[in-house]
Design a protein around this nucleic acid. Structure first.
Lengths: 118, 118
DNA sequence: TTGATATTTCAACAATTATCAAATTATGGA
DNA sequence: TCCATAATTTGATAATTGTTGAAATATCAA
């Protein structure tokens, strides 16, 4: 991910409705949710939501697939991982103070791993 | 960090000039750099830079301190850590696919730690 | 105090972004 | 085919954001 893609992804998430959309779709997992359902749950007009979904998709944070009459949107977890990787790595060069406190998320991920001082 | 602060921080970084400012100041470390020096290095008008510095500071990503006639700006690493923590934790609930590939940054941080499967 | 330097604030303007109603496209069923 | 449903696109408008020159503020040195 380069600086251009990063500003796109950051900009896509830097708006309350879009951040809410992404968070909702993260909870729904790979199956995703039809656009109309997202609009209904968040109380957003279909046309307005469509605008925001397009931005998130253009930034690569959502994947869209049609299923019959509906279009299902799902969060792209790898893309979010790439964005976080950009922030930690390219942007902050793995600075210790930035990385401190990241263990909680990793542990919650349920990865069977433990840290051992060497 | 709540959703409001997160959108602020994301928005602050979602602009090429501001992302460049933050990256520059990360490289300079806690000592920071005077506003004029940042403007000169990035080739941005002082007034324009001042506008962007204010946004980054308002988002908590930069700390400003006056030293004689200059105002030194430095990256706030803890704030960036909090933003990344929000994205991983609150936003993605530590989803494995998002966290995959985060080790590189942590190892680059020079933390004397190794992972062991349990 | 006066002058020079560093930076911010102000005011104006251009560009971008967000919202919504209306029109359009795509799909499936009668 | 015709109709209903799901979603997007378009066009208008309001709101926000980014840029710049000029003016204002703060600090230091003579």
């Amino acid at each position: 991910m380069d600086e251009f893609e990063a500003t796109r992804a950051l900009g896509a998430l830097a708006q309350p409705t879009r951040l809410a959309v992404f968070r909702l779709l993260v909870r729904e997992g790979p199956a995703g949710l039809p656009a109309g359902e997202v609009a209904a749950r968040l109380g957003v007009q279909p046309a307005t939501l469509s605008f925001h979904l397009a931005q998130l998709e253009r930034a690569g944070l959502l994947a869209a697939r049609r299923q019959s009459r509906q279009i299902l949107y799902a969060a792209d977890f790898a893309a979010m991982g790439a964005l976080v990787g950009f922030l930690l790595d390219d942007c902050c060069h793995g600075h210790p103070e930035v990385c401190a406190g990241l263990d909680a998320a990793e542990e919650r991920a349920g990865r069977a791993a433990a840290k051992v001082e060497v």
